[in-house]
Design a binder for these strands. Sequence first.
DNA 1: GGTGTCAGTTGATCTGGATCAAGGCACAAT
DNA 2: ATTGTGCCTTGATCCAGATCAACTGACACC
Lengths: 249, 249
Amino acid sequence: MNDLPDPLSSAPIAEDGDEYNFCSTCAFSAACLGSGYDKSGLRDLHVLVEHIGPFQEGEHLFREGDAFTAIAAVRAGAVKTYVVDADGREQVQGFFLPGEVIGLSAISRARFPCNAVALDCVHLCRFSFPNIAALATRMPGLQQQLFRLLSQDIGKATLLAGNYSADERMAAFLLELSRRYAAPGFHARRFQLMMTRTDIANYLRLASETVSRVFRRFQDEGLISVQRRQIELRDLSRLEILARSVLRQ
Amino acid sequence: MNDLPDPLSSAPIAEDGDEYNFCSTCAFSAACLGSGYDKSGLRDLHVLVEHIGPFQEGEHLFREGDAFTAIAAVRAGAVKTYVVDADGREQVQGFFLPGEVIGLSAISRARFPCNAVALDCVHLCRFSFPNIAALATRMPGLQQQLFRLLSQDIGKATLLAGNYSADERMAAFLLELSRRYAAPGFHARRFQLMMTRTDIANYLRLASETVSRVFRRFQDEGLISVQRRQIELRDLSRLEILARSVLRQ
DNA sequence: GGTGTCAGTTGATCTGGATCAAGGCACAAT
DNA sequence: ATTGTGCCTTGATCCAGATCAACTGACACC
């Protein structure tokens, strides 16, 4: 098993006698706790958070074309976003782990450009976008955080756009997952894949058979150990060499 | 030749006796002219614009790793952004035409994640990012516009991440160029490619030979007519059918 | 225990596009 | 005119990864 920090635990923030319970995975906590925040803004942010869920495995959080009203941070569980192309093939656009923010790509057209589905039991922190944008005008730290998150997603999308081999993609994918699991305190080298081989394949633009074969070869070469969905990264430095073109540093 | 609107012309904006000269291609004009803007904000935005250039063909606007201090809208000319991967191969990330904004992907790390080079004679409108962000706290319309632009770029990057054939990619590329040329008033169906076949290939993750062959085949099939870098789209509806999976609507 | 189902594996074959190789074409410098 | 020198085209061959097909293994339900 993964060693999991309790994903639903909250971090109480004492402030002048008031106390706000931000969930520990909320992506905006940092912005709010940053220096120079507006005290009443902190209260407002707390008020406009809505804890929603649980969503069961397979349940949709939103669908392509739905009106966009809110972004959401994952509190617990994992989410897959995808579109279905003209020929009915699924293109996976991304996976979202605890602490990560979903929905930023919907801002520009005010509609969700993709579907989002729970890969296991998912809890979210929901933020009305008009409200959080209004609040951001009073909290420069929050505005900065939003700009940062949006900008990060551009970079993330650019990664898998590159022209890379199956091995490079897979190594980058595993290291990326590792980094992102480690961020909120999960184990960096042993983790549970929450998606099917087919999902991974659709994300990396490979066939699922190729995913199987690369896993097998990586295991035979001592890079990883994989058993069903349990992954252990056994040779980070060789994985990093494989992934260096994709991850660029 | 393309029929070009004068790219350096300015749109004078009369406002209570004051008059500001925003260049006609400046991507923020719209935000500033939207309802509910702050009058002094308009003045401030005007002040923080810096018209820079010209950059000659081949000259770099910035390089990977450079400190990020400003975003820029293209006033005239075309820009290519790219990275060079571990094996020395160039990966083209995007092309920027008049009216489009460069540098948004640099916000999150405060450094440019790529190189930008002029493809012909380029003029820019430069906006200090700290200043424009500060101004955005007073002009909700400007903040919205920034969010929109950032969000749009996520979608743009997601497009070419998909798993598409050479024909689909090329058709989508041509239609996308057409749409983007048309936006600031250029001819939508006849235009000049400003980049080499190799650039297009690196952008679409193809070999330049493949780009040549697809052009030739598209021409033989009556979809386009191409002569050196002069392109004419001759059958938009068939191109749209080819591109429908990529462009998704 | 049987049997359905879905996820994953493994092997055999096929193919889209890459790579390799050889010219061609437009334009600049001598 | 001659000789570059990029850029582009065209043809021949190759190969990474897709596709097709058969099978396995885990788990749920009767």
